[in-house]
């Protein structure tokens, strides 16, 4: 491949990554507010976001850190919450040049997220690694900057505004899970059951035995397995 083609793909990646990065900034700013409420510093948030790039995973991690959960609980929760990336990477691997080096594959793997996967999987194959790098250099800093600024502004802004901003991340989660439920009533039922059980698990005395991280692990494994057995997803429904 010529240098100019690499540069071109890199720039194209940055251009395509820009709208994703803007969305990430808003989500990670809200995540930063949640982190600040849990007592994390801007540096903690910056490092966590630079190394993880996962909204649900990081939001769950904040709860585990706040409750001083075990490292094992942290590892297990991240495995369960982020295991869907395994499926995405497995689908992505067939889009790559089979001869692409291990080092380059290891770089691409660092920034596989729901939005970026959707973008990458729809490109001409074999996928240009420079296109993926272009997306990464624009999305990762936005994600990390949003988190850091969220924590900083959480400290500066008046408490009435911070309290209001504290529900932004959860409102965004609702905006992710609810719209597909309009067309798919099985999903709606699954979401409702998940919320009801989550509520029950948060009540005394169950909450004394089952921490926030354990709750996420148990309910995700249990309910997703049941749903997969009862309602297997056909190819066209999935993604």
């Amino acid at each position: 491949m010529y240098i100019s083609e690499k540069v071109h793909n890199f720039q194209r990646g940055m251009r395509n990554g820009l709208p994703i990065a803007a969305g990430y900034f808003a989500v990670s700013f809200s995540l930063g507010i949640v982190m600040r409420n849990a007592g994390l510093t801007p540096l903690d948030g910056l490092i966590m976001s630079l190394l993880n790039n996962t909204s649900a995973g990081e939001a769950a991690a904040v709860g585990i850190i706040a409750s001083n959960g075990s490292y094992l609980e942290m590892a297990a929760s991240q495995l369960v919450i982020n295991i869907r990336y395994f499926l995405m990477s497995a689908a992505l691997t067939v889009c790559l040049d089979p001869d692409l080096s291990l080092a380059k594959r290891m770089i691409i793997g660092f920034d596989v997220t729901d939005e970026i996967f959707a973008l990458l999987v729809n490109q001409k194959r074999p996928l240009s690694e420079y296109f993926a790098y272009g997306i990464a250099v624009i999305t990762i800093p936005c994600w990390a900057a949003g988190t850091t600024l969220g924590i900083i502004f959480g400290d500066i802004l008046p408490s009435s505004i911070v309290n209001a901003l504290s529900i932004a991340l959860y409102a965004m989660f609702i905006a992710v899970i609810l719209p597909p439920c309009k067309k798919n009533h099985r999903l709606l039922l699954l979401v409702l059951v998940s919320m009801v059980l989550s509520f029950i698990f948060s009540l005394e005395p169950i909450s004394a035995f089952i921490s926030e991280g354990m709750k996420i692990i148990i309910l995700t494994l249990l309910l997703s397995s049941i749903a997969a057995l009862v309602w297997p997803v056909r190819e066209e429904e999935g993604k």
Binding site: A56, I81, T220, S224
Partner: peptide
Amino acid sequence: LYYVPYVT
């Protein structure tokens, strides 16, 4: 894996 994000 399709259902995991909804439950989580």
